[in-house]
């Protein structure tokens, strides 16, 4: 598979949020404003890319040679948790307003299943180092895309008349359903 196909497949056709249900929590939580959606998307893409690189190295040079693959889940999650800690410290130092707007969702990137899912899928599909990184960037781009589209729609929804009981999470899910339906149209792309 060429790298471009891999990228498009991860970003659009098999979009992590809308067709694989990974990273739904931040998708519901941080999609109220387009600005914070973009920064969240970038932070996640960054963590994903580094995770893909580090977990590849750990898996192929430590876990497999020493036959420790039973420790896969534990070691991957530790890598992700420490990376997120680093990113959090970095953002806090670089941009205080951004840090405040992401709030609780920044440390929660650790429990963003999109990142753990990416690490597991890359191992399952036996991607090479380069493939894994392209896959991660694609998945991150797809996550950002879904988040930004959703935030755009939700900004408009503020003005719409939503049935009382569906305000908030309910309508978000239904809009996500329509988006998922639209993204299914890309299925024949590759």
């Amino acid at each position: 598979m060429s790298l471009l196909t891999l990228f498009i497949s991860a970003a659009i056709v098999n979009n992590f949020v809308l067709s694989q249900f990974l990273g739904i929590c931040p998708f519901v939580g941080v999609s109220k404003k387009v600005d914070s959606a973009i920064s969240m998307g970038i932070a996640v893409t960054f963590v994903m890319t580094i995770t893909a690189a580090v977990t590849f190295i750990i898996n192929n040079f430590i876990l497999i040679p020493f036959e420790l693959s039973i420790l896969q889940t534990v070691s991957f999650i530790l890598v992700i948790a420490s990376l997120v800690q680093l990113v959090e410290m970095f953002i806090k130092k670089m941009s205080k307003p951004l840090y405040n707007s992401l709030g609780i969702f920044l440390p929660l990137i650790t429990t963003n299943c999109a990142i753990m899912g990416l690490a597991l899928f890359a191992v399952q599909k036996e991607y090479s180092f380069v493939d894994g990184i392209i896959y991660a960037v694609g998945a991150g781009a797809g996550f950002t895309l879904a988040l930004v589209i959703m935030a755009g729609i939700r900004e408009e929804l503020e003005l719409a008349k939503v049935p009382k009981y569906f305000k908030g999470a309910g309508i978000t899910m239904i809009v996500a359903g329509s988006l998922a339906l639209a993204f299914m149209g890309f299925a024949g792309l590759i």
Binding site: Y165, I174, G177
Partner: peptide, 17 residues
Amino acid sequence: LPPGAFLTLGIFIGLSN
């Protein structure tokens, strides 16, 4: 398929409210 999951859960949440 994926859209059905989102729609059903959305309706569930609305109903529970």
